[in-house]
Structure formats: C-alpha cells, structure tokens
C-alpha cells in the first residue's frame, strides 16, 4: 500500500458513493448510463470472485464487498426503484461491442490459462472501456449535471492515481503487470477529453455543456 494506491481507492469509493447518493437524494437517475453501470457490475463480479479463493487483507476484502454491494445497489435503483427516470433513449451505446472484444482479448492476452485468471483479465479489459456508454450519453445530450461531472472526475482519477501507484511499485517492489498497466493507461486516456472540460468548466462553477 502506498499513498497513490490509497488515494486511488478512496477516489474510486467516492465516485461510487457519490453516484448512489445522487440517485437516492434526487430520486432520479437522469443522465446516468445504465449500460455503463451494467458493465461495472460485470467488472466487479468477474474480478472479485477471488473473495472466495484468496485472502489479501481485511481492507481488500472490505472494499471488494463495498464495490460489489454499491454496484448492484445502483443497478437496483436504476432499473427498479427509479426506473421511470432512466433516460434509455440517450443510452444507446451497443455494449456488446465492448463485452465481446474484451472477452476475446482476455483469451488471447492473459498471464495464465485458468478460469479465474481469464475472468480477472476480462474484468481489467472491460473496465478500461466500461465508461464509454456514459461518455457517449454525455456527448449525445451535450451536457452533464455537476454532480455527475464530479462522479466522472472521481472515477477517472482513480485509474490515473493507480498509474502513479504502478510506477511507484515498479521502483520499490519490482512489480510489473503489463496487462493491468496498459489497460489502466487506455482507461485514463478515455477520460482526457472529459478532464479538460471538467477543469475548464465545472471547476469554474459552470455547468458541463458541450459546444
């Protein structure tokens, strides 16, 4: 554990909780992509199956349980409790275009051919692109609520902080996992456009709207 990894995890946690609280308080999931949320649920489920097979630390297990619970809680709010507020007309990204290639890639580039390792690798590849339906939705509607922007910023920062963590771990522990590093870089690059808009608009008190 180092400061970059901890900050990344806390940023990730903040993002997930921010989204849950936003939906709960406003009684609405308008502007949120249900498809991205489905992808994140697949990501956490396939990655955290190791809750049952290996123990790293109380911290790790606790965070995994929180991420899983919050993710399924978000899906419940979006597709059951506040379903009428779900803006599915603008959530039109075809997620099979992300699900299938990630799955194929996880069979081609993987450290070891075991079911658990392929599922873990799949979760890494899918996570890298899971935000695309949400970013697509923002580009289609041309705007995002400020709280949604904060959510996206926290979620994007998490993997960027993990990149610093991997650089740190490379020098201090000789840790080098190219699968997770390359996927993490791709994931962070996808947010760059949004980061720019966030810094130039949202942080200056303006609403995030596209020209």
């Amino acid at each position: 554990m180092n400061i970059f990894r901890l900050s990344g995890d806390l940023s990730h946690l903040l993002a997930i909780l921010l989204l849950l609280v936003k939906i709960w308080k406003t009684r609405s999931c308008a502007g949120i992509s249900g498809k991205s949320q489905i992808l994140f649920a697949i990501v956490y489920t396939t990655r955290y199956l190791d809750l049952f097979t290996s123990f790293v630390s109380v911290y790790n297990s606790f965070m995994k349980v929180v991420f899983l619970t919050a993710s399924y809680g978000t899906l419940y709010l979006m597709f059951f409790k506040f379903k009428p507020t779900y803006d599915h007309n603008h959530d039109s990204f075809r997620i099979l275009y992300l699900i299938i290639p990630s799955l194929v890639l996880s069979f081609i580039i993987v450290h070891v051919y075991t079911v658990m390792e392929i599922l873990w690798t799949y979760s890494i590849y899918l996570e890298a692109v899971a935000i695309m339906p949400q970013l697509f939705m923002v580009s289609r509607t041309g705007e995002a609520e400020t709280i949604t922007s904060h959510y996206l910023f926290a979620l994007g920062s998490y993997r960027a902080l993990y990149i610093l963590n991997w650089i740190y771990r490379y020098y201090t522990e000789d840790f080098l996992d190219m699968i997770v590093i390359i996927a993490g870089i791709v994931q962070t690059i996808l947010y760059c456009d949004f980061f720019y808009l966030y810094i130039t608009k949202v942080l200056k008190g303006k609403r995030l709207s596209l020209p």
Partner: peptide, 10 residues
C-alpha cells in the same frame, strides 16, 4: 509475471 500470486489490488 506475478500470476501465481493473488492479485493484491482492487
């Protein structure tokens, strides 16, 4: 790689 060890990140 570290593939024989459990993944210690989230």
């Amino acid at each position: 790689s570290k593939s024989e060890e459990p993944h210690d990140e989230l």
